[in-house]
């Protein structure tokens, strides 16, 4: 009977260990965030948001970086959304089970796993140099659009797949063409899922640093972009820049900017989850 008792103890011990592990990551994250809040919350005021970066920590602000991030987000959406949705529609509704479609599938799966910095190298050669866009907002957006393209495609496909086959049957039986069925039935029905996907993809894009550094986004930009061809900076790069400065004032700035970046990221994630729940209810 000793053996059974030993096994039960081990079982209970693992249960405790399991709970510990589950909470460990979240506890650590809370500690980090708490730490950041302590470091940075007092630094945040309207001036911080509206100021341009400067050599003096107390006068520095995130205005140009924030504007840059907004520009990048909007332009990236404009580029990635149509291509991603079109590709997803093709793969889900038009492609047949042939060699091409399996190549497309493997390829997208592979692209999703390519490190973001490699996309930066691609963007540097193709967009900045060959297409001569320079280190502009446009080049940055094209690069990030390619980065998030697999995410948009996969989530759009999932959303379209979730529309029941009976809807397609009903539409075809009425003599609708494939495109009419996609346009009138499938896209409206999967709208919520598609929206969720794009918001999640963008919340990833807003935090991307490495590819934009590689294409030449500057760490010190004294102006907000006014056209897609302007140079730019983004919030994460501004944070990175401040972290590398030795003066303590910049650490506070970095912490404050991080709070704002986290706020943006979590709000976007929250909105995406909200839409996903609303959309899933639609089919119940």
């Amino acid at each position: 009977m000793n053996n059974i008792k030993k096994n039960r103890l081990k079982d209970q011990a693992f249960k405790v260990w399991g709970i510990f592990c589950t909470l460990l990551g979240l506890v650590l994250l809370s500690i980090f965030i708490g730490n950041i809040l302590i470091d940075g919350i007092l630094r945040i005021d309207w001036e911080f948001v509206m100021n341009l970066p400067s050599r003096h920590a107390e006068e520095s602000g995130i205005f140009t970086a924030l504007m840059g991030s907004i520009w990048i987000l909007l332009l990236t959406t404009v580029i990635a959304l149509p291509i991603g949705i079109a590709a997803a529609i093709y793969l889900e509704e038009y492609s047949k089970k042939n060699k091409l479609s399996s190549i497309l599938e493997v390829n997208i799966s592979n692209l999703a796993g390519v490190p973001s910095i490699i996309y930066g190298l691609l963007g540097l050669e193709v967009f900045v140099r060959i297409l001569e866009m320079g280190a502009s907002v446009l080049a940055g957006s094209c690069t990030l659009a390619l980065l998030i393209l697999p995410i948009v495609i996969v989530s759009t496909r999932e959303a379209i797949k979730a529309v029941p086959k009976s809807i397609r049957d009903a539409s075809f039986a009425m003599g609708a063409s494939k495109w009419q069925t996609v346009y009138h039935q499938l896209l409206p029905a999967s709208f919520g899922g598609i929206l969720t996907g794009i918001i999640l993809a963008l919340s990833r894009a807003v935090g991307e640093t490495a590819p934009l550094i590689v294409i030449g986004a500057l760490a010190y930009v004294p102006f907000a972009p006014e056209s897609p061809m302007d140079q730019f900076s983004v919030l994460p790069i501004q944070i990175f820049n401040w972290i590398t400065r030795p003066q303590h004032g910049f650490v506070e700035n970095a912490a404050a900017a991080i709070i704002i970046l986290l706020l943006i990221t979590f709000v976007m994630n929250g909105i995406a989850v909200y839409f996903r729940n609303r959309w899933q209810k639609k089919f119940k």
Binding site: I167, D169, A170, A173, M174, G175, S177, K282
Partner: peptide, 20 residues
């Protein structure tokens, strides 16, 4: 084929109204 189907109606086993 689409013209053909416009002249023929089909009703399925499980009612399948569009989510509209």
């Amino acid at each position: 084929v689409e013209l053909l189907r416009k002249q023929i109606g089909m009703v399925f086993q499980k009612p399948n109204p569009f989510p509209k």
